[in-house]
Each structure stands twice: as C-alpha cells, then as structure tokens.
Computed example of a mutant assay.
Amino acid sequence: MSLIKKLAIGALATISALPHMASASAGELNLLTWEGYAADSFITKFEAASGCKVTASYVGSNDDFAAKLAAGGGVYDIITPSLDTVPMLHEAGFVDPIDTTKVEGFDGIYPEFSKVSAVVVDGETWAVPLIWGSVSLIYRPDKLSSTPDSIGVLFDPANKGKVSLWDDKSAIYWTARYLGYDNVFDLTDEQLDAVKAKLLEQKPLVRKYWASAGELTELMANEEVYVSNAWTGLTSKDVNALNKGFNVIEFTPKEKAEGWMDSMMIAKGSPNTECTYKFMSFMQSADGQCGIAGETGYFPVNPKAVQGCMNEDLKKERQVNNVEFVKSLVMWEQPKRLDKYLEVWNAVKAGL
C-alpha cells in the first residue's frame, strides 16, 4: 500500500475517532505554518481589517503537516506546505479545493506558480501560492581554509563536528546532486542506496540536524556549526544582525541551489471559510506580500502586489518579475516514491 493511501485511511480513521476534540471557531483562524509566516508586523493588520483572530502553530519540516493534520482533527484552518508536499496532502484527503474567485489578487500571482500541475488538478485548485525562495549553503569564511563552491563542503572531513543539515528528506536531494544524479526526485534503488551510504558516511561530521531556521541561527551564532544548507536570505540576515564578531556568507554551489514555493491550503472541513478566504486575499495584498517578504527575506509570488511597497533595489534582490531565476534552481517536486525517500531519511537519522 502506498504512503498516500495509508495517510488517507489513517486520516479518516483519526478524524472519525475524534468527534470530542475541539474544532476551530468561526471568527478565529488557526494556521499551521513556518516561522516568520505569522509575524505580528503584518498579522495584526489582517486581524484589524478582517475581525478574524489568528493563532499560529509551527512546523519544522514538510513531513510534519500530514502527521499534525491526522492527529489534530479540526484544529487547523490553513496550512502552508511546500510545493513537493501539496500533491500528497490533496491525494490523502487532508484539504478542500479552493474557489479562486474568492481570493482577491489571485490573478496577480505568477502563472508559473498558480497553474503548476501540483496546484491545479483536473481543473480544481488546491493551493494558493504564498511565498517562494531558494535553499543555498551558508558558512563561516573565517573558519574554512578555502572558499567553497560545492555541496562537497558538507561532506568534508575537515569540518567534522561543525556541519549541520536540515532535518528533512531534502537531504537526499542535496546528496544525490553531489553524487552527480540529475533525477533527484526519481532515484533508483541503487542510487538511493548510494545516497544513504553517503549520508551515513557524513553522519559523524554532523553536529546536529536543524529543525527550524531559528535553531540553525542559534547553532551558528553559538559557534557550534560552521557550514550548513539554509533558507537563502534568512539565516545569514539573522546571524549577521547579532554582531557576534564574525559574519556568515551564503553561496550557490556549482551543483545548483534548490528552489521551493510555499502555498496556502484549506484544511479539510474548516468551519472558518470566511476567514480563510479573507486571509488568502490579504496575503496577496501589498501588506501581506511585503509583510511576509520583509520578515523572511524570501521572494513574493505576486509581483503586482509589491509594486508600491518595494523600491527597485529590493525588487531586484527579491527576484520580482524574474521568474527566469526559477529555471536556475532545482525546484522541489514530490518524489515519485515518497515512502521510499522517507524510509531512507529515517534510516539515516537512526544510523541504520
């Protein structure tokens, strides 16, 4: 049985077994999202304009969404998974389709995101693009003997005990590219075995697998880690702002950086559809798009929305109207054999 079918069956069983659990109330909006995606700097504007009170819970990995939805019954209204996780959540029955006519500003979203096959299935839209960006590498130039240009820096024995990596199946994507595999989302059993062996070989070099951007910032700020993959623009900004007497630098490896796009999805059976659509519309406005981009350093999905709230230099930095940049990235996709990828990553973490 596939992982998606298992999740769907498990979700239905869990939901039917939890009628006693408290559901979200109308006029309230419960988000399951990432750090920085529910910051007071823009959420308070939404609450004042909409009359909807926002409560946010946070994830550290895309793998958390399905588990929390299955365990939480009707607790959440909107979730914000990455593009490689959207199809699984839809197919597993965790979300409801979206009426895009109720999302103000939807037509301003890059069609490269709003019409992608992971988002639109059989004429129905399952996610509203929110924000996008890349995952690059970050390092302490004062601690490395040379300037790195490759993913190989994560596997260099010279950095033993000072390497970190995001605790996510995407570690497989990074390792596969380092090994020269182009089909990173459809690896063969033999290739997955090679990736697993390389990650197990790397394991003694790793200080810690980080679960959130805040955790990686602490690891670097406390000088526990010198090199890692990281959300482009966020960790370097946060670490360097601490003025610890050193700086960190980001770079795009010769094997390419990864690209991602996070979207808003409506949790199955949410009683707060009025607030959900108000929120989705707000996040396509200038306050929403510039708000989340300002908090995270990521790139807006709605170029029309940011015309009046970003100057030309910032627009250039945040890749506004430069969708060509997407083509330079390895954009995340749902692996063809998601269950196998998760099995491999969990085995690596367990040291098996």
Rank of each mutant, 00 (worst) to 15 (best):
M1A: 09
A11Q: 06
A11Y: 14
I15K: 14
I15L: 14
S16V: 14
H20M: 11
S23P: 00
A26H: 04
L29K: 06
N30S: 08
L32C: 10
L32R: 07
W34Y: 10
E35L: 09
A38M: 03
D40V: 11
F46I: 07
E47H: 09
S50L: 04
V59Q: 05
D63C: 04
F65C: 13
F65D: 08
D77L: 06
T80R: 03
S82P: 06
D84G: 15
F94K: 01
T101E: 11
K102N: 07
V103W: 06
G108F: 09
G108L: 06
G108K: 06
G108V: 11
E112S: 11
F113Q: 10
V116D: 08
S117A: 12
A118W: 10
V119N: 13
V128C: 05
L137C: 00
R140E: 03
D142L: 10
K143S: 08
T147Y: 02
P148K: 03
P148V: 02
L154R: 04
N159G: 02
K162N: 07
V163S: 03
D167W: 05
D168A: 12
Y173M: 04
V184K: 02
Q191A: 14
D193I: 01
V195A: 07
K196E: 15
A197I: 00
R207D: 07
R207C: 06
K208S: 13
S212Y: 08
E215Q: 15
L216Y: 08
E218H: 07
L219K: 09
Y226V: 14
W231R: 04
T232W: 07
K237G: 12
D238N: 12
N243Q: 11
V248W: 01
I249N: 07
E250H: 09
F251Q: 02
T252H: 10
P253V: 02
E255Q: 13
E255C: 05
M264N: 13
N272Q: 05
K278P: 02
S281N: 03
M283L: 06
I292A: 01
A293Q: 08
G297E: 13
G297F: 12
V301N: 11
N302G: 03
A305N: 08
G308K: 12
C309D: 07
E312I: 01
D313C: 00
R318G: 05
V320Q: 01
V323H: 07
E324D: 12
S328E: 13
S328M: 04
L329V: 01
L329A: 03
R337S: 11
L342S: 09
W345D: 08
